[in-house]
Every structure is written in structure tokens, then in C-alpha cells.
């Protein structure tokens, strides 16, 4: 029996979900709310693939107990799909072929979007810092940096 009731705003919608003490925010987003852009990589807070925005800041949903999301605002890539900046980022990812297997792509796009939405002047080093917490094992990162940089210059 799930024992804890949590209330959170996910992608603009207020939700109430029953969770177990050992459920992670990641589990609730994927399994209860069907938000499959959020992926599990390492499960230990190292790879960054499970990144979501919590109260506007990138965090790792695999090491956040679901009960700690109570009364917080969560945004996943699904919640940003119609945002103009995110659409530009996604077009740019296609142009630069910044996705290969695609597993890290949602997390890369979310941290890229967060950077462009919080800072006015963004150079390539700043982009590298912003994506440094997300591992990609295919692209070698350059295409991802270029894709975000092109949007930063617009």
C-alpha cells in the first residue's frame, strides 16, 4: 500500500500522487505520470540523464525521494515542447546531428534550455559547464555544444 500523499505541480498541472517511501521522483514521473522523456541511466546521481527542473533549477530525479517533491514545481521536457526556445534548440540539435542514440538528448535539451533562459551572454565554455553534468557516450559533445551555441547567438 502506497502510504505517502504528495502534491506537486508537474508541467503546469497540479497533481496528487500516492508514493512509497522508497519511490524516487524519477519513478513517479515515468510510471505514474507517463513522462518518458525522463530516463534512468546510472541511478546514482552521476550521469545526469534523469535531469528535470525542480522549482526552475536542473536536478537529478533519480536521487530525489518522491516525498521530497511534495509542494514543489517540476518541469520535464514534455512541459517545454511548445516553448519557442526549446523548439529552436530541438531544430538546432537536428541540424547539428547532436543526437545519436538519443538517450541523453532530453536531459541535454533541458539543461541547454535552462542555461539560455537564465543567462543573457552565453559562450561555448559556459555551455560546456552547463552540460557537464550530463553524460553522452556517442556524440563527443561538440555537436551538442554547437547546437546550443547557435541558439544562444540568435
Amino acid at each position: 500500500m502506497k502510504s505517502l500523499l504528495i502534491k506537486m505541480n508537474v508541467n503546469g498541472v497540479d497533481r496528487e500522487v500516492l508514493v512509497d517511501p522508497d519511490d524516487r521522483l524519477l519513478d513517479v514521473l515515468r510510471d505514474e505520470l507517463n513522462l518518458k522523456s525522463v530516463k534512468e541511466g546510472c541511478g546514482t546521481g552521476d550521469c545526469g540523464i534523469c535531469t528535470v527542473l525542480m522549482d526552475g533549477k536542473p536536478v537529478l530525479s533519480c536521487i530525489i525521494p518522491a516525498f521530497q517533491a511534495n509542494n514543489h514545481k517540476i518541469v520535464t521536457l514534455e512541459g517545454l515542447n511548445s516553448d519557442p526556445t526549446m523548439q529552436k534548440i530541438q531544430q538546432s540539435f537536428r541540424k547539428y546531428q547532436a543526437a545519436q542514440c538519443g538517450f541523453c538528448t532530453p536531459a541535454m535539451e533541458v539543461v541547454g534550455w535552462h542555461l539560455l533562459n537564465t543567462e543573457k551572454k552565453v559562450d561555448k565554455n559556459r555551455i560546456k559547464e552547463a552540460i557537464s553534468g550530463v553524460l553522452c557516450r556517442c556524440t563527443g559533445y561538440y555537436d551538442i555544444v554547437d547546437a546550443v551555441y547557435e541558439v544562444a547567438q540568435q
Binding site: G45, G48, P58, V59, I63, V111, G133
Partner: peptide, 9 residues
């Protein structure tokens, strides 16, 4: 310290 995501938490 950690990564940007870790520093936020």
C-alpha cells in the same frame, strides 16, 4: 563541487 545538478540540491 559535483555537477550543476548536484550543486542545486
Amino acid at each position: 563541487f559535483g555537477s550543476p545538478q548536484i550543486r542545486n540540491r
